[in-house]
């Protein structure tokens, strides 16, 4: 049964959406758009995330550093990443670098805070064990603090990647004429809801794949330590 007589610019028939998706796959546009979105995410997460990770570990290990950095963090962190779109456009113009910079900024803060908390919540008992064994400070960090914090840091990475995807698509819709976000808004503006829905479905698939992959990786990396059989 098919509903008839409904007219809306915001709707499309499932068959039309499927056709649009097939066309996008066939002419390769969907891959091109995906790469335009994934590339700045990769660069942004790698730079911003790594920087956040390093600073987070440092603040987690040094109480003095954490106290000194506290005010700066609390002042800069609340800035919504999309609010720096104009700034990055002035610096980089439009394109991949501008988008990567915004994503890097967005990823830096959650990575920093979650890593810092992961390190500070490492059981003091483990550090006592390390001291009793006579491990020097550097080995305490490498052999105790970092591996103990690793599962929570990985969770932080998953969260950060989710944020990166949101920020990437938002930037593309608002300012940067590239990638999946721009494809969605141009389809909407040119009254092609079928194409728009095709891209939305593709985004959902991408996000789902990302999460499945990371969950699987998490289990492989840390499963045995949580008591799961490592067969």
């Amino acid at each position: 049964m098919r509903a008839t007589g409904i007219q809306s610019d915001g709707l499309a028939l499932p068959s039309q959406i499927a056709t649009a998706l097939c066309d996008l796959v066939a002419d390769g546009e969907i891959y091109l758009r995906s790469v335009e979105t994934v590339a700045p995410i990769a660069i942004g997460v790698l730079t911003g995330g790594t920087l956040g990770l390093l600073v987070g570990v440092w603040l987690g290990l040094s109480k003095t550093a954490a106290q000194l950095a506290w005010l700066s963090i609390e002042l800069f962190r609340p800035i919504p990443p999309v609010a720096i779109i104009p700034l990055t456009m002035l610096v980089y113009g439009i394109g991949i670098r501008m988008e990567a910079a915004i994503i890097g900024f967005a990823c830096f803060w959650p990575m920093l805070l979650l890593t810092r908390d992961a390190v500070t919540s490492v059981d003091v008992r483990l550090f006592e064990v390390a001291r009793m064994l006579g491990l020097p400070r550097r080995k305490q960090i490498v052999k105790i603090a970092l591996p103990a914090a690793a599962p929570r840091v990985f969770t932080a990475l998953r969260l950060t990647l989710g944020i990166a995807l949101i920020v990437a698509v938002t930037t593309e819709i608002a300012a940067n004429p590239f990638g999946l976000g721009y494809a969605i808004i141009s389809a909407g503006l040119s009254l092609r809801p079928d194409v728009m829905y095709a891209f939305l479905i593709w985004l959902a698939i991408l996000g789902w794949l990302l999460n499945v992959g990371l969950t699987h990786l998490h289990r492989r990396l840390f499963g045995a330590t949580a008591g799961e059989a490592s067969s």
Partner: peptide, 16 residues
Amino acid sequence: DVAIVFQDYGRALLPW
């Protein structure tokens, strides 16, 4: 020279 066996072995061993 000195070793200590803690009561809470669950916290004193490295789970990874």
